[in-house]
Simulated assay, not measured.
Amino acid sequence: MARPLRPDFIIVGAPKAGTTALHSALALHPDVFTTTPKEPKYWLCGDAPPPHWVGPGDAHSQQEWVWRRRDYEALFRPAADRQVRGESTPFYLWSYPAHRRIAEHLPEVKLIAVIRDPIDRAYSNWMHLWSDGLEKEPDFERAFHLQAERIDRGWAPFWRYKDLGLYGRQLEHLYQYVDPARVHVVRYRDIVESPVETTDEVCRFLGIRTGLVHEVPRDNARAYASPAGAPPSSARPSAPAPGPASSCAPRSGVRPPYRSSTSSRPAAPTGPSSPRTPAPGCCRTSPTTSTCSRS
């Protein structure tokens, strides 16, 4: 009997937290099938065309959405019978309606949430859009506080530097619809420092063989691009020294080597625009748990 055309697992988020790296690592596994495109965004849509976001670059992004059910199901048709099938849309974790749709239509799917220090994630998000020529605000803190204005103007979710990092609230809501036993939380820092071991943990969660992925491909991080003419507060920040309260990964956007490192790091910058100061409402990953706690 043919299997239903649907995913067995979904990497649900978060954006700029290592989802592309994990997706690419799983794609190397012979027991895994991943979709093309990587981010179909189907469960954001509810069988309707995507919203007409009007932010810079949003119209182009909308062309990549797979919003018809038949087109979404067709993505999984090439999978072999022995393979678990997955897709990776990092905005599902942020989208409460997506939680409900996934729970209703995919009652057995396994979900993987990759989380990162929310300030580092937000800075990487800003740097991604700046490097692509879409973000026009050269100061990170000012751009961060433009979120409400940009939402009112109809910009897409990728511009929500703050909201995309509220993992505590997002996971709490997700657990109302999906059994926590079917949700595996991965920290970005673990992907960076223990890539093979972290991938094997995900494989065990998916019920497939371990020890078959020997590297994690570099993710889609953008190289640091200095904002021309920016004030000193927008200079490239440095990561703090390693320790229990350190961030999950450097926030600069430079691709880190996916191996353990014990090298010392310079101290974080100080000043009004340092991204080390949590913004109101943000949450921070706990060094002792896989979820996060609100500041």
Rank of each mutant, 00 (worst) to 15 (best):
E197L: 13
E215W: 08
F158D: 03
R204M: 09
P240A: 12
K38N: 00
A228G: 01
H214N: 09
E172M: 06
K16C: 08
K162F: 14
T34L: 14
L26E: 00
P195V: 03
I112P: 08
P232A: 11
C45T: 05
T89L: 05
R69C: 03
R77N: 00
H29M: 00
M1I: 08
L206G: 02
Q176G: 15
R251K: 02
R77H: 01
A48C: 06
V84Q: 07
I115E: 02
V183H: 04
R142Y: 08
P278E: 00
Y161I: 01
R182N: 07
A267F: 02
Q83D: 14
P180N: 10
S293H: 13
K16A: 09
E108I: 05
R160T: 03
R69V: 10
N220P: 09
W67I: 12
W130N: 00
L28S: 07
L212Q: 03
A241F: 09
A235F: 08
T277Q: 09
W159T: 04
P138I: 14
Q176M: 01
F76L: 05
P256A: 12
L212S: 06
W126V: 07
C283P: 02
E39P: 09
H173D: 15
G211A: 15
S273M: 01
P118Y: 04
E108Q: 10
D163V: 02
S226V: 12
E64F: 13
S24Q: 09
P250M: 06
S124G: 05
G55V: 09
L166P: 00
A156E: 06
I10R: 00
C282S: 10
T291E: 13
P51A: 14
C203N: 11
P138R: 15
M1Y: 01
I11R: 00
H184N: 05
A14I: 01
P232G: 08
S295H: 11
P272I: 10
D200N: 15
L106N: 00
V216P: 07
P227E: 02
E104V: 08
H145Y: 14
P7Y: 02
Q176H: 12
R284T: 07
P30E: 06
W65D: 03
P4W: 06
S246W: 08
L146M: 12
A230V: 02
A27M: 14
A225Q: 11
T210S: 10
D8F: 00
K136N: 14
P280R: 05
G13D: 07
A221T: 07
H145P: 05
H29T: 04
I115W: 00
P257H: 09
V183W: 02
V196T: 08
D8M: 08
A241M: 11
T288Q: 12
G281N: 10
E215A: 08
G165M: 09
